[in-house]
Design a binder for these strands. Structure first.
Lengths: 189, 189
DNA sequence: GTCTATACCGAGATAGAC
DNA sequence: GTCTATCTCGGTATAGAC
């Protein structure tokens, strides 16, 4: 991995662990093993480097979600697979976390990937839910957009609960609770 | 409002807006109108002041939730009232946000109020759900603890979605989606 | 209780040598 | 491309006068 690459990866880790305000150029340099001059040679500064890191994290999240959504099985199974996918609940969501970073939200460039990621995520999930409803797999009264928003929110909020409790268990509990509500519609249909 | 009080309130606002790492003593002094010496007279430093602010925010959250939970109406109505309560979705949760602050989570003293708040919240909500189930108001197969975790997560995650989208609408959508899933059980019973 | 002075360190970046 | 030197500012706190 070359220097530029190590800088981006180190920044991704630090943004995930400490957020934008909590991440200093010096910390990035130390973790990546790159020197001061090296970092400023490859990037214009902290925001520039952060943009590269955030964009990559957003892309990665999208790909992982797509893999579950496009996987095998019924709509319900694919949604369950997405929600139950192994996650490091205590670390939280590398993209969702940026939402709490005032400096990220204040910068349109840094903010865009975050905004687009969640728009895509809820939109895609809503499409999947609509499909499941059309195929009679889900309750006809189910609102795809609202349900999609609720499910994505459960994941993001599940991280909050897990971190607050200091245990990943609560995350799993929240997800199972939500899943039970969605899937139960099938049985009651 | 005396100086000490203004210091606490200003810190609460800043922690809410910018988090712990993003809040400097200087910023607190400016917002509260208190001088350097004044702040260090009333508090031992940033962590001490933050503890007072966090504790108060946690207490406040608890009281507001209790008001909804103990309000009039059926269990379903009280839960709906809690979820639909007016919230400043774009600002997020003053307590949940701290969960993303590495320095807060690393300090047991600062962390405790956060942990306790969510434990109480999910526990209380679970009790309410269990009551609703016992009284035949909710589906007998509903898991109170898991459902409570899911609902609290929807609120916390709803804030994330709202901030990502830059619009409070998404928050409302997520909450309504979750509520529809929970209440629908009643109709299908 | 509140003020000002002072101190030290890290954040964030630039300049120029190699 | 990478290194070191240097710069300026703000974060965080202490000391002592008033």
């Amino acid at each position: 991995m070359d220097t530029r690459e190590r800088l981006i990866e180190s920044t991704r880790e630090l943004l995930w662990e400490r957020g934008y305000v909590g991440t200093s150029p010096k910390a990035i340099q130390q973790r990546s093993g790159a020197g001061q001059g090296s970092m400023y040679h490859h990037f214009h500064g902290k925001p520039d480097l952060a943009l590269a890191a955030i964009t990559r994290s957003a892309d990665e999240l999208r790909e992982r979600a797509r893999a579950a959504f496009d996987g095998p099985g019924t709509v319900a199974e694919r949604i369950a697979a997405y929600l139950r996918r192994e996650r490091d609940a205590l670390k939280g969501c590398p993209v969702g976390r940026l939402t709490q970073d005032p400096d990220v939200m204040a910068d349109p460039e840094l903010r865009r990937p975050v905004e687009e990621t969640f728009a895509w995520l809820t939109g895609t999930l809503a499409g999947l839910l609509a499909q499941g409803r059309a195929e009679g797999e889900l309750h006809p009264a189910l609102d795809p957009a609202a349900t999609a928003a609720a499910l994505v929110a459960v994941v993001q909020g599940g991280y909050v609960l897990a971190r607050a409790a200091g245990s990943p268990q609560v995350y799993a509990q929240a997800v199972e609770g939500a899943l039970a509500l969605v899937l139960q519609q099938k049985e009651n249909r």
